[in-house]
Design a protein around this nucleic acid. Structure first.
Lengths: 136, 136
DNA sequence: GTAATACCCCATAGAAATACTAGGGTAAAC
DNA sequence: GTTTACCCTAGTATTTCTATGGGGTATTAC
């Protein structure tokens, strides 16, 4: 399951997509509009900025904005940034790989299936972008 | 990600599949062989029993055993039993559905994609069974 | 240049989930 | 009736989740 944090991230991002071209959007604006705690949202947006998805501008008229086209931001990137691994097992994770202590060298039988699940999931999450989750 | 508990469950189940036909297997046997804490494993096996996957026999010569053929136990059943929902969002979960407060009536844009992910995942996890995760 | 704005950073904290641990109870087999 | 081995309740340490609070700093408008 996605954490609340990741869900909030998506809600904030879709809002920013909708507001694209209107200049920076303030945290307080997003928080109020989407019903998210302001301080918690602050942390989330900061992470999205550090992850290269958002840019920010300080001072009057400042706020957050997308630094890429929505079509260039796959959903997988957001999930990995906020929640971490997409795979169901650390030993089949592409970006957060860790060996299992319980798997023998030739791997336990789970690996194969979980790698399949990972691939099927990524096939969707890598292709779908922020542009796809904004209602027409 | 699967919890350690779920991973232990799979390790224990594969062991039971390998020992099928040899009568009940004791918890202590599985725990030692798979390197799992005995008391923690006890809890896990009990949940698998309550979930209708395992049977147990008390007293001397007792232990746990599969009550169905390994081919009849899909991996999805084990995951749902131990970890809960397979879907990434509660609002697209088939077995643990909960409405999202942030989604409007016609749904947020995420729903569609996450339902796709769920279907792709289930297509694998419903078809693959305990028989598939035991090494030939 | 100064005051207002709005992001930035650090510390803390309650609640829940995770991953166990301890100890005794109970049914079955011999 | 004693041993075996599952069954049940309770507790606990650690981590993660979900925030909250207060102050610092860069930018802009005037």
């Amino acid at each position: 399951m996605l954490s609340k944090k990741a869900q909030y991230a998506f809600h904030a991002l879709t809002y920013l997509v909708e507001k694209e071209g209107e200049g920076p959007v303030q945290i307080s604006n997003i928080a109020q509009e989407k019903g998210i705690s302001l301080k918690f949202l602050e942390i989330i947006l900061l992470e999205l900025k550090r992850g290269g998805i958002l840019g920010s501008k300080k001072g009057k008229g400042g706020g957050y904005y997308l630094i890429k086209s929505p079509k260039e931001v796959p959903l997988s990137k957001v999930i990995r940034l906020i929640d971490g691994p997409i795979a169901l097992l650390p030993c089949v994770s592409l970006n957060f790989y860790e060996p299992c202590e319980h798997c023998t060298e030739d791997g336990c039988g789970l690996n194969g299936v979980m790698a399949e699940v990972r691939d099927a999931t990524l096939l969707i999450l890598e292709r779908k972008t922020l542009a796809d989750i904004v209602k027409g």
